[in-house]
Amino acid sequence: MNIFRFAGDMTHLASVLVLLLKIHTIKSCAGISLKTQELYALVFATRYLDLFTDYISLYNTLMKLIFLGSSFSIVWYIRYHKIVRRSYDKDQDTFRHYFLVLPCLLLALLINEKFTFREVMWTFSLYLEAVAILPQLVLLQRTRNIDNLTGQYVFLLGAYRALYILNWIYRYFTEPHYVHWITWISGLVQTLLYADFFYYYFQSWKNNVKLELPA
C-alpha cells in the first residue's frame, strides 16, 4: 500500500459517500445517471469475485464490501425508493449503456492476462469501469444546472483513478516485475474521459461560477 493508492481509495470512498449523502438526505437523484450507477454495480460485482475466496487484508475486504454495498443500494434507491425515483430523469438518461457491456466483454475475452473465468471477469470490470462514466457525462451536458453534490461526486470519481495512476507509477519503480499494461491503459483512458469535465470544474471553481458543461 502506498500513499497514492490510499488517497485514491479514500477519494473513491468519498465519491460514494457524497452520492449516498445526496440521495439519502435530500432524497433526490437529480442529475445522477442510473445507467452509470448500474454499470458501476456490475464493475464491482465482476471485480470482487475473489471476495470470499482470497483474503488479502481486512482493509481490502472491508472496502470491497463498502463499494459493493453502496453501489447496489444506490441503484436500488434510484430504481425503487418511492421518493428518490421521482427525481430520476429517465428521459434525459438515455445513453444505451448495454452497448458498452458487450464490447468490454468481447475485449476482455480477447485481451487479458490469463484466460481464466476470474481473470476475464476482472479484465472486463476494468474495461467497463473505464467507460462507465459516459452516461453520467452525457447526462451532465444535458442537465443545465449541475448541483454541487453531483459535480463533487463526478470530480471525486475521476480524481480517484488519477491518483491510482500515480500509484501504478510508484509501484512500477518500487516493485520489480510490477507490470500491468491492461490496468494502466484502461485506467488512463478512464481518466482522460474526465479531462474536459475537470477543465470546466476547475474553471467554475476558479471563477466561482456555477458548473456548466457546453452542450
Binding site: 475473489d50 472496502m63 481473470e119 500509484n167
Partner: peptide, 10 residues
C-alpha cells in the same frame, strides 16, 4: 500470490 490470482488493488 493467491492461486495465480494476483490482484491486490480495489
Amino acid at each position: 500470490t493467491y492461486n495465480g490470482y494476483h490482484h491486490d488493488e480495489l
